[in-house]
Structure formats: structure tokens, C-alpha cells
């Protein structure tokens, strides 16, 4: 098992609906919890992470702040299209501490891209400090 969402593993954030240059989307997959991507107002917000190729995914772990409802969608295409929803979840609110939330899948789920949709927040702004995706490269 391996974090296939790391920049070092060839993953990229190919879309994010908000960008403050001090807190860019790359901060979600740089391996550091200290750095983060922040939303800059209004919901929904979303971001898409593309892997270096097709992956079999067992779990997604998120370290975030002030997210209320989030859904995860996957695409198995080469391009980030034809997304289908995997799971939607309500996060537990925290005070001055990171939210730690897992999405686990019963069977390994194939994906080349994951789309994360933040439907609502506990505050006007949310932050995503780390997205880890536990998976392995799929044989094609």
C-alpha cells in the first residue's frame, strides 16, 4: 500500500474552484499537514486529483477544517470525465483542530481521477490540509 495521491507519486490537482496563491491546491498533496488549500467563499467547492494512471483504491483519508458535507466521485477514463459518485459523508465538526475523516471501500475501487465536492461548510471558508489515497497501480 502506498499514498498514490502524493505529488511525488505523480498525482496532480487538475482543478480547484478557489485559489489563494498563498494556499494553492498543490498543498493538499505535498505530504505536509501544515500546508493547505483554502476555499475563498461560497459553496459548493470542488477539486479533482488525477493519478499517474489507473489505480485500485482501498481508502481515502482527509485532514480538513470546517467541512460539513463532502462527496467523492471517481472517473476511470484517461481524461477527467464521466464521474460517478462513490460516497457522500457528513464530517464531524472540530474546534481549533483538524478534522480527520476516512472513506473506505469494501472492494478496491478503480480510478484515474477523484473528484471531491464540498457541498457545505461549518464556516464561510474550509481548508484541506492533506488528501491521502491508499492504493496500488492497476494492471491494465
Amino acid at each position: 500500500m502506498f499514498d498514490v495521491a502524493l505529488t511525488d507519486a505523480g498525482a496532480k490537482v487538475v482543478l480547484a474552484t478557489a485559489s489563494d496563491e498563498k494556499h494553492p491546491p498543490e498543498h493538499m498533496i505535498d505530504g505536509s499537514e501544515e500546508t493547505f488549500w483554502s476555499s475563498t467563499g461560497l459553496f459548493p467547492q470542488e477539486f479533482v486529483i488525477s493519478f499517474s494512471g489507473l489505480m485500485n483504491i482501498n481508502a481515502v483519508n482527509l485532514k480538513t477544517y470546517q467541512i460539513h458535507k463532502m462527496s467523492i466521485e471517481r472517473s476511470v477514463q484517461a481524461e477527467p470525465i464521466d464521474f460517478e459518485i462513490l460516497e457522500e459523508k457528513e464530517f464531524t465538526v472540530t474546534d481549533m483542530a483538524l478534522q480527520v475523516e476516512d472513506f473506505t471501500f469494501d472492494e478496491a475501487t478503480a480510478a484515474t481521477h477523484l473528484r471531491f465536492v464540498v457541498k457545505s461548510g461549518y464556516d464561510h471558508f474550509i481548508s484541506v490540509h492533506q488528501v491521502s489515497v491508499d492504493g496500488t497501480a492497476a494492471r491494465q
Binding site: F36, G41, Y65, H124
Partner: peptide, 17 residues
């Protein structure tokens, strides 16, 4: 006012880890 609110909230996000 909204801009200041953002700056304040980001300050909090910066102290979480």
C-alpha cells in the same frame, strides 16, 4: 468585512498543525 473575515480564518487554519 468579508475579506477581513477570510484573513482571520486563514490565520486559524495556519495554527491547526
Amino acid at each position: 468585512a468579508f475579506y477581513r473575515l477570510y484573513e482571520e480564518k486563514v490565520e486559524v487554519m495556519n495554527t491547526l498543525v
